[in-house]
Design a protein around this nucleic acid. Structure first.
Lengths: 140, 140
DNA sequence: ATCCATTTTTAGAACTATTCCATTTTTATT
DNA sequence: AATAAAAATGGAATAGTTCTAAAAATGGAT
């Protein structure tokens, strides 16, 4: 009866990933939290409900998911990698003031013309500036 | 008589940065090595000629240069930050096979329409795939 | 030149994100 | 139930970066 878990399981299996408890938990977390969390945030939030969970498992799972193209890794922040289960074309904006990372929808992602011989598998566009809330705060 | 050093010094002073020996060296390195080096590469290469150089100074300098908008930090690689003194609009391509980071010229950098209230200061586009050499190698 | 305040550099410790490793647990198969 | 393979675990190890406190360099004012 748990629709979400069924979708999660299907998405993993579709990419040849065995849906273990831990992998399901990480994937479900990413699909239900569109906050571009770090590995540590995922671990911290899942730990209470899976007390045997290890950080290594979270990292292993995330690496596997990225490898198989189920989630994407976002390197918009030097410090830590962030993860996003939404594979629709969109770009990311980071607010320099509050640190929020915001999805920005685009019709189609821009991929500039490449020099001869180069083949592009994926591309990411990162924008950095101030978000609406922080801009408002500054004026007042 | 050293033209390069004059240009380096001018570029630092233009941004209110006192041109110390170390800062000059880091900036000159970035301007003459268009390889998007890491902090460690810069340190390792400069160390022989400045034997008192400390890694902290390299990091301090790079952070200062980025803050003042003299160089840009490239986070195309999770592991370490890379630096680029070229501020002309261009994007970066990383070869998944050999790790090379290549400049790709663009007429103008794409900045998608942002939701209301957001102001964008800068944007970066990263492409990942296989470079010409690696593609050639794979066919043969 | 000398003194003083300020800025910059330095070395190494500290911190943090991530990976590695050896062991244990779980899962699937016979 | 026995066995083999895959996954998870905890903790140690690694690596990039920052922090800290002290030393060195710089730039006036005297």
């Amino acid at each position: 009866m748990d629709k979400v878990k069924d979708i999660v399981k299907e998405r993993l299996q579709l990419h040849g990933i065995k849906p273990s408890l831990q992998r399901m938990a990480v994937m479900e977390y990413l699909m239900t939290h569109r906050t571009h969390p770090t590995a540590d945030m995922i671990y911290t939030d899942l730990y209470p409900s899976i007390p045997t969970l290890s950080k290594a498992t979270v990292y292993n799972t995330l690496n596997l998911l990225v490898e198989r193209g189920v989630v994407r890794m976002i390197t918009i922040e030097e410090k830590n990698a962030r993860f996003d289960a939404c594979m629709e074309p969109h770009i990311h904006f980071r607010c320099r003031d509050c640190g929020a990372i915001i999805d920005v929808d685009v019709e189609a992602h821009w991929i500039p013309a490449m020099p001869d011989g180069i083949t592009v598998e994926m591309s990411e566009t990162y924008c950095i500036g101030s978000c609406a809330e922080c801009n408002k705060r500054k004026v007042s």
